[in-house]
Measured scan of single mutants.
Amino acid sequence: MIFPGATVRVTNVDDTYYRFEGLVQRVSDGKAAVLFENGNWDKLVTFRLSELEAVK
């Protein structure tokens, strides 16, 4: 189960963010908004829950 605050990895091989890890900001309607941070940039991207896996 994916909840806000969880760290997730993108599993969709066709996505630009494949294998990126980010922090879930919100979850609704089968989608999750994931925040990616890297140095001087932040990006908030929405994914279907089926495209994400929780990082242990």
Rank of each mutant, 00 (worst) to 15 (best):
V27W: 02
D29G: 10
R19C: 13
V24Q: 00
A33W: 15
Y18L: 02
T11R: 08
D14V: 08
V34T: 01
E53Q: 08
K56Y: 13
G5Y: 03
V45F: 05
L44Y: 06
V27Y: 02
K43L: 14
E53Y: 05
D15H: 15
D14Y: 12
A54M: 13
D29H: 09
D29V: 05
R9M: 08
G30Q: 05
V45L: 08
T7E: 05
Y18T: 02
T16C: 13
G22L: 04
R48L: 15
V13D: 05
K31D: 06
I2M: 04
F47E: 02
G30D: 08
Y17M: 08
G39T: 09
V27D: 00
R48T: 11
K56H: 12
Q25E: 07
R26S: 15
A33P: 00
V8Y: 00
V45W: 04
L35F: 09
K31T: 11
V45I: 09
D14W: 10
L35P: 00
D42S: 15
V24S: 00
N38K: 10
A6W: 08
R26A: 14
D42Y: 15
V55C: 06
Y18A: 04
K31Q: 09
L49A: 04
F47K: 05
K31F: 15
V27H: 01
R19D: 12
M1E: 12
E37R: 14
F3Q: 10
D15M: 05
Y18G: 04
V55N: 03
R19F: 08
R48P: 15
E37A: 12
D15E: 05
D29T: 05
D42T: 15
F20Q: 12
D29C: 10
V34R: 00
V55M: 06
F20T: 06
R26E: 13
Y18P: 01
G39C: 13
N38D: 11
T16A: 14
F20Y: 11
I2A: 02
I2K: 02
L35E: 03
L35T: 05
R48N: 15
N40F: 10
A54H: 09
T46H: 10
V10D: 01
L52T: 00
P4D: 04
D29N: 11
P4R: 07
N38V: 13
Q25N: 04
S50Y: 08
I2H: 02
V8H: 01
Y18R: 02
E21H: 09
F20C: 14
D14P: 03
V8N: 01
E51C: 05
Q25K: 10
M1T: 11
F47R: 07
K31M: 14
L49H: 03
P4Y: 05
M1G: 13
R19P: 06
M1Q: 12
F47A: 03
W41A: 11
L35G: 03
M1D: 14
Q25A: 09
D42L: 15
K31V: 12
P4T: 07
T11L: 08
A33T: 15
G22Y: 02
L23R: 11
F36N: 00
F20I: 07
G39E: 09
R26D: 11
V10Q: 01
V34D: 00
R26P: 01
R48K: 14
V45H: 06
R9I: 09
V27L: 06
V13P: 15
G30S: 06
A32G: 02
D29P: 05
E51H: 07
V13C: 09
L44S: 07
R26V: 12
S50N: 10
V8W: 00
R19K: 11
A6R: 06
V24A: 03
L49G: 02
A54C: 11
E21I: 15
A6Q: 11
V10G: 01
F36Y: 02
D14Q: 10
S28N: 09
D14T: 10
K31H: 13
V10H: 01
R48E: 15
F3H: 10
R19Y: 08
E21P: 04
G39Y: 07
G30N: 07
E37D: 09
D42E: 14
N40Q: 11
L23I: 15
R19H: 11
K56C: 13
Y18N: 03
T11I: 14
R19V: 03
K31G: 06
A6P: 01
G5I: 02
T7Q: 08
F47C: 05
L49I: 11
S28K: 10
D15Y: 04
A32Y: 05
D42W: 15
N12Q: 06
V10P: 03
K56Q: 13
S50W: 13
F47T: 03
P4H: 04
Y17L: 08
D42F: 15
D29F: 08
S50M: 07
A54T: 09
E21L: 12
T46C: 14
E37K: 14
A54Q: 09
D15I: 05
T7P: 04
L35H: 07
Y17C: 07
P4N: 05
K56F: 12
N12F: 04
D42C: 15
S50Q: 09
S28A: 12
L23P: 02
K43H: 10
V24N: 00
S50K: 05
V13S: 10
F3N: 06
Y17F: 09
N40V: 11
V55H: 03
R9T: 06
A6V: 14
N38Y: 14
R48V: 11
F20W: 15
L49Y: 06
E51V: 05
F36I: 08
F20K: 12
V24D: 00
A33H: 12
F36S: 00
W41S: 10
F47I: 09
G22S: 01
A32H: 01
V45M: 07
G5Q: 03
D14E: 12
D15F: 04
E37N: 13
I2D: 01
R26H: 14
G39L: 09
L52R: 00
A6T: 11
S28L: 10
A33F: 13
S50A: 09
M1P: 12
V45G: 04
W41H: 10
F36E: 00
Y17H: 08
N40W: 09
L44C: 12
V34P: 01
A32C: 07
V8L: 00
G30Y: 05
L49P: 04
L52I: 08
R26G: 09
Q25G: 04
T11G: 04
T16R: 12
T46Q: 10
S50L: 06
R9H: 04
L23N: 05
G22I: 04
F36A: 00
L23S: 07
L52G: 00
V24L: 03
L49M: 07
L35V: 06
S50D: 14
E53M: 08
Q25Y: 09
D29R: 08
K43I: 15
G22T: 01
R9G: 02
K56N: 13
Q25I: 15
F3M: 10
T46N: 09
T46W: 15
A33L: 15
K56V: 14
A32M: 02
F20D: 04
V34K: 01
D42P: 13
R48Y: 15
E53G: 04
E53W: 04
K31C: 13
T11E: 03
E37L: 11
A54Y: 13
D29M: 08
K43N: 10
V27M: 07
F36R: 00
L35W: 11
M1A: 11
V45N: 03
K56I: 13
L49C: 09
R9E: 02
A54K: 08
V27K: 02
L35A: 06
V24M: 01
A6F: 07
Y17I: 02
A32I: 06
L49R: 01
A33C: 13
N38T: 12
T16G: 08
R48G: 12
Y18S: 03
K31A: 08
A32F: 03
K31E: 11
L44W: 07
V55P: 03
M1C: 14
L52Q: 00
D29Q: 09
D14G: 09
A54W: 12
F36W: 02
L23W: 06
Y17E: 02
M1S: 11
N40G: 12
E51P: 00
Y17R: 05
F36D: 01
V13Q: 11
L44T: 09
P4C: 08
M1Y: 10
L52H: 00
